[in-house]
Structure formats: C-alpha cells, structure tokens
C-alpha cells in the first residue's frame, strides 16, 4: 500500500471521529448546518445506488423519504413510540415496499421509469393526504415537541456512514460492475449472463432503504410533518442535482456533490431568501451544460483522481504475481 493510499484511508477515521465529536464543540445553526449536510449527502448516496449505477433515473425517491417520515410521525407522534425504534421500523417498511415496487417499476425503461417514479411519489403523497384516519391528512402530524438536533445528528451520521460503506462495496464489487453494465447496455449485459432484473431490484431496494431512514430522522428533527413538506418534489430534484454535480455512479461523487450543494444552498438561503430556488434551476442548467459527468470526471480528466477499483487492482496484481494460478484458466480457452 502506498503512502498516499495510507493517508487517504487514515483520513476517514479522523473525519469520522471529528464528526462524532462535533456536537461537543458546535451548537445552534453550525450544528444544524452539518446535520443538513449529512441529510443531503445521505440522500444523494441513496439515489446514486440505483440511478447512478444502473442509469434508471428516478424522479420519485421522495416517496421513500416521505413514507419514512410518516412512519415515524405516526408511531412516535401519534402513538408515542420511542423514535429509536420508530426510525429502524421506517427503514424496514420502506425496504419491504420497495421490493414489489421495484419489480413492477423496473419493467419500465428510460423516461418511462422516470415518469413512473414521479407518479409513484405523487400517488404516495395523495394517499398521505386522503387517509385521514392514519395520517391526519392535510392537518399533518406533530411528531415531537422538543428540539432533537443532537440525537438526529448522530442518527444521520450513522446512516451516512452505512450508505457510504454500502456504496464503497458496490463500487468495488462484481455486483457494482453488473449494475454499471446495465447502465451501459442492458441487453448486452443480459447476453453476458447478468440477471438484470434481480440486480436492478436489489439496487432499487438498497436505494430506497436509506431515504426511508433519513425521512424518519428528518420527521423527528423537524417536529411537524404534512404531505406537502415531506413529499416535496424538491427532495427528489435535489438528490439528482447533488449526484450529477459530484458524479453519478461513483463513490466520491455524491459526497462532493452533497457538500457543495449544502454550502451553496445554505449560503444563498441566508443571503437571498426570495431567490434561492431560482439558483437551483440555474445550477441544473450549468451542470448539464458544462459538467454533465460531474466534478469527479473533471478531476479524473485533469489527472487529480485515477479510475481504480481497489479490489480489482489487488486481484489482478495477485493473479499476475502467482504464476500457478494460470492453471485455473480452463483448457478450452
């Protein structure tokens, strides 16, 4: 392992410890800023798992976020369950819902899938609005009367660490290669023996789980939810925007995109409260026109980052340095 690699790997625990200790030193808006950053980056990572790796662009991931928020809203806000139990249940329910939904929706391709997922999000919001008996409809739910920043901060930090770990695994695994092959050419991937349906559904479920958890934490943090706030299309758009900004289908892309997005949005929100939404639209245009493959791609083209899957590099090195392993190549080829 090179010194550079050691430094890079060593930086992760340092950043992790710093993030874990931050609530001891930060308070008020400064802590909320990082909480929102974790929320944004976590959502970007979630969306990236299915849309970035397989190319199935979802405009409806807010549905999972909203369902997660409502599960915590109903369990903790109405039935007074402990939020530490309600949040994992929110994730579990979303995971269960995502499997048949993925099986159904992933039959659609390209723009049809994108629009189909948008319809799923709208339909879910409608159910939340109309099912008064369960969700209290348009009145919304008061989830919590206390200010829960520190607990939610740690909750989001854990979810973020897990989703980053899952993405790192996907990016360095054969599963990840299969997902990328689906993005590149699904028919050719299937002709290579890739069970595209199974892999897409698995990616979709993983991608739905984390917004469910994050939505649950968000509901506990924000204290009051209604269909308009937690099913807002902006959550979906922001997931897409952050991932495209950083680089879809990569490990570092959502991190870079999410951090940059949080800085820009929070700066504009504070200084130009009436114009900040316009900036989101402008950002989309700028990204699509000038850096369609994200910041990661720019860094790679400039030679500041290399395209390397650590697991493959290690594997090939070991195969090359072990001559007897060549015997494993079947005689027929």
């Amino acid at each position: 392992m090179t010194m550079r690699s050691k430094l890079r790997l060593g930086a992760l625990p340092v950043i992790g410890v710093a993030a874990a200790l931050a609530p001891l030193f930060l308070a008020g808006y400064r802590l909320v800023f990082f909480l929102l950053m974790f929320l944004h980056v976590g959502l970007a990572y979630s969306w990236n798992l299915v849309s970035g790796f397989t190319g199935y662009i979802s405009f409806g991931h807010v549905a999972f976020f909203g369902i997660g928020a409502y599960v915590v809203g109903i369990l903790s806000g109405i039935h007074h369950w402990n939020w530490l139990i309600a949040v994992p249940l929110a994730g579990a329910l979303v995971l269960v819902i995502s499997l048949p939904l993925g099986w159904l929706m992933l039959r659609l391709k390209g723009p049809y899938f994108a629009i189909g997922m948008l319809a799923v999000a709208q339909a879910t919001a409608l159910v939340a609005s109309l099912w008064d008996g369960l969700t209290r409809g348009g009145l919304g739910i008061f989830v919590s009367s206390s200010y829960n920043v520190v607990g939610v901060y740690y909750g989001l930090l854990i979810v973020l660490a897990v989703v980053m770990g899952v993405t790192y695994w996907v990016d360095n695994s054969r599963f990840g290669l299969r997902l990328l092959s689906i993005r590149e050419d699904e028919s050719a991937a299937e002709a290579m023996g890739v069970d595209t349906t199974r892999d897409k559904i698995l990616a979709f479920a993983l991608s739905a789980l984390f917004p469910g958890l994050i939505g649950g934490l968000y509901a506990w943090y924000i204290g009051y939810i209604d269909p308009r706030s937690v099913f807002s299309l902006f959550f979906s758009v922001n997931m897409i925007l952050m991932t495209l900004l950083g680089g879809a289908g990569t490990f570092l892309g959502p991190l870079i995109g999410g951090i940059a997005f949080t800085f820009v949005v929070e700066s504009l929100w504070v200084r130009f409260p009436e114009y900040h939404l316009m900036s989101t639209g402008l950002a989309v245009i700028v990204i699509v026109m000038f850096i369609p493959n994200g910041i990661i791609d720019v860094l790679k083209k400039r030679g500041w980052l290399t395209h390397r899957r650590r697991i493959l590099t290690r594997l090939i090195r070991s195969v090359e340095t072990t001559p007897q392993k060549k015997a494993e190549v079947p005689e027929r080829v």
């Binding site: 054969r174 092959s181 493959l312 090939i316 494993e328």
Partner: peptide, 15 residues
C-alpha cells in the same frame, strides 16, 4: 469481468 458473471472471480481474472 462482466462476461464472466456467475463464475469464481479469481479464475475469471486469470482468464
């Protein structure tokens, strides 16, 4: 490597 889906990774790399 995508072409070797379903086979053992190490022998796929050698192949």
């Amino acid at each position: 490597l995508v072409g070797a889906t379903g086979t053992e990774l190490r022998s796929a790399a050698a192949r």
